[in-house]
Amino acid sequence: MNHCPKCKVYIRDEAVICPLCGAPLAVDNTEQRMVGYPDVAYRLKFMRLLIKIALFASVVGQGISMFLDYFINGEFSWSLITGVGLAFGCFTLVYSFENNKSVQHKLVGQLIAAILVILLLNRIIGRGDWGLTIGIPSAIAAIQSGLLILLFMKLSHWRIYVMAEVYIVVTAILMFVIVLVTKHDFWLLSALSAIYTVVVMAAMVVFGGRHATNELKRRFRV
């Protein structure tokens, strides 16, 4: 076991420099008694490099888009849309691979991000309020369908989607109410998406029976 004459301590691992004071160790050929730890540094370095490459590519891509847009049109127009798309793509990539979020969490998070992106694109492009009357109800319907697919893929775990479904229903009804209150002529899609989500929720409660109501009771326990 190597030994630090300054700290008067014996080192069990294969260090040649004292980890406490940085002094060279006195070499001793007696048996090392260590189990040790794995070498983690190399693996983390590689993953960080991949993330940096993806980020760099996004920034360069957006820069080129804005340059070309201004060069051709004399102003920033379509490059704003690519910017929003790239930002949403990066968000989706990072958020989807985040470790501390469930699938349900990611569904609801993507729904909120999709709504914001649609509203932003509507503002950039203009041409009426298609975001509120067409874009958002379509996004809600798509997310609802995604949840149904996941649910049928693993029917035995249907309970874990109950709260996500509650959030989707509340969002759909809220968007429908906003469309009505703001007196938009085309409210049909909002109504249909709200009805779709309510039907799915009702099916969960009816077919789930006591287990669905107990799940809701646990979630809403004060």
């Binding site: 080192i11 040790g36 070498d39």
Partner: peptide
Amino acid sequence: QKEFIRRMTEDGIHVEIETNGVYDESLSKM
């Protein structure tokens, strides 16, 4: 950590240490 270990060795306590390699300069600079 150095002061803590030295406190004990000054009091005549036999101490052996082991690290997880992070303090090794060549491994931990990323």
